[in-house]
Design a protein around this nucleic acid. Structure first.
Lengths: 157, 157
DNA sequence: GGAACAAACTTGACGCTTCAAGTATAACAT
DNA sequence: ATGTTATACTTGAAGCGTCAAGTTTGTTCC
């Protein structure tokens, strides 16, 4: 085998540190201010942007970068809090629609500003416009290599 | 408040997807081939690179981007597997040294090649040299804004 | 149209992470 | 020298994620 070159390590180390720390920092803000996890937020905000605030479990799992199993557990918790409800899909009994309730919508509205601020403070505002775009492009490329395409709203895609 | 612009979202979405998926992919390889988590590996390899394969718990926590609590639990498990042992520090009774055992060293040797291959396949090889360096520089910058400095071996730092 | 297969989702158990609290040692103040 | 505060770490419980199985509903293929 061959470990990474010094140059590669100089890039790898900061990146893996970021991978470890940024999610923790984002989670900390959401937990403190809204009592939810980053993943909860991803699920709620994913639903909030969908037509009729409704998505099939499997679609929602793709948006939240999650296994169905994980999503199922989380939706059970979110349902218990009254933010989401499940509805069987009339056409095909295998599908389950997750629907954001009005209370869930209110939760998203209440939570978004603080979360957006955290994203800005931790990431967006410490980078130049070009750097942030590069970060996005690089991320998209890594995901594309795994066959994953990320949906971007308002991007004609 | 103000949500992100379309341009910013076009960068943010792929990035957060990467944040969700890459650790899972790395964990999957390590779990399958070595029965350990990414975090376990970070701890073991961190020790393997330290002088005398020994680090104080708090230093190791910094290297592994972890809380002391999390590290303490993990070291307990790694100790049970015979890969790490704890030693009180003679000079200052508050410090505890974590020491990589010979078995732990062997585990690192056995695990590293597969892990490195995964890192290459998932990340390094799908990017150009320039992109990978940019990714490292951007990561370092984001961390620096939090006051975090990442140690790079063989970099005169 | 009935049996085999597949797809979508759920469930339970186990392991890991986090949080709050606790212990033990050292440094500091008076 | 003694009480106070700070540092380094541990511990237990509660919550979350993962994995392997299980359930239910559709599809396919003679």
């Amino acid at each position: 085998m061959e470990w990474l070159t010094d140059e590669q390590q100089a890039a790898w180390r900061p990146f893996i540190a970021l991978l470890g720390r940024l999610p923790a920092a984002l989670d900390a803000q959401l937990q403190r201010d809204a009592g939810i996890t980053n993943f909860d937020y991803l699920v709620l905000s994913g639903l909030s942007e969908a037509p009729s605030r409704t998505l099939r479990m499997s679609e929602l799992a793709a948006i939240a970068n999650s296994s169905l199993s994980r999503l199922s557990h989380v939706v059970t918790r979110l349902e218990a809090k009254g933010w989401v409800r499940r509805e069987p899909c009339p056409g095909d009994g295998r599908f389950i629609n997750a629907v954001l309730t009005d209370e869930g919508w209110q939760k998203v509205l209440a939570t978004a500003p603080g979360h957006v601020s955290a994203v800005r403070e931790l990431l967006v505002d410490v980078l130049t416009k070009e750097e942030f775009e590069q970060l996005g492009a690089i991320s998209a490329r890594v995901l594309a290599a795994q066959g994953i395409k990320v949906a971007i709203p308002n991007a004609g895609g």
